[in-house]
Amino acid sequence: MKTKILLLFSICSLLWSCESTRTAIFDQYSYQKTIELKVETKQLLGKSSQAYEANEAEINQLLLNVAKLTEYEKNKPNNETSYEMWQLITNEEKNLLAGFFKYWKEKKTVSTTFKEEAEKQIMESFDVLIQFEIKKDKASQQTLLDVITKNK
């Protein structure tokens, strides 16, 4: 019996120590903030057929809010995937959120058709982030809590 228990605890320790597969759990704050940023971005992209300068303050505020969330994601344990995705979105050299603002700044204004197509691309990138957050470990966190509660 004792040998069996020791064996079981050894297996648990081995599994628990597998750091490479640890992932962050679902975070309501990340989820909510990402959706807020998606909505704010959509609103701002809608103005991109206007002059960049007229919207510069709003653009800088949005980028600041995105930078804050990116920093938050960076410092969460086992959250490398989300952080990597946010880095892509905030990279001016890529053609997503930050890249679009850089393009808009260079061109001063963009055509309505391009604005609509770019908006679809950027909204899709936000959906990738949101869907990933949803897929995080809500279910098994609850299972673990159930086990602890049942055995009090």
């Binding site: 990597e84 979105i89 890529k94 053609n95 890249g99 391009f114 950027i122």
Partner: peptide
């Protein structure tokens, strides 16, 4: 060209996801 590159970047995002 910008749109084409954005599609590549979306793919990278999905691969990471």
């Amino acid at each position: 060209e910008w749109l084409l590159k954005s599609q590549n970047d979306l793919l990278t995002l999905k691969v990471v996801q």
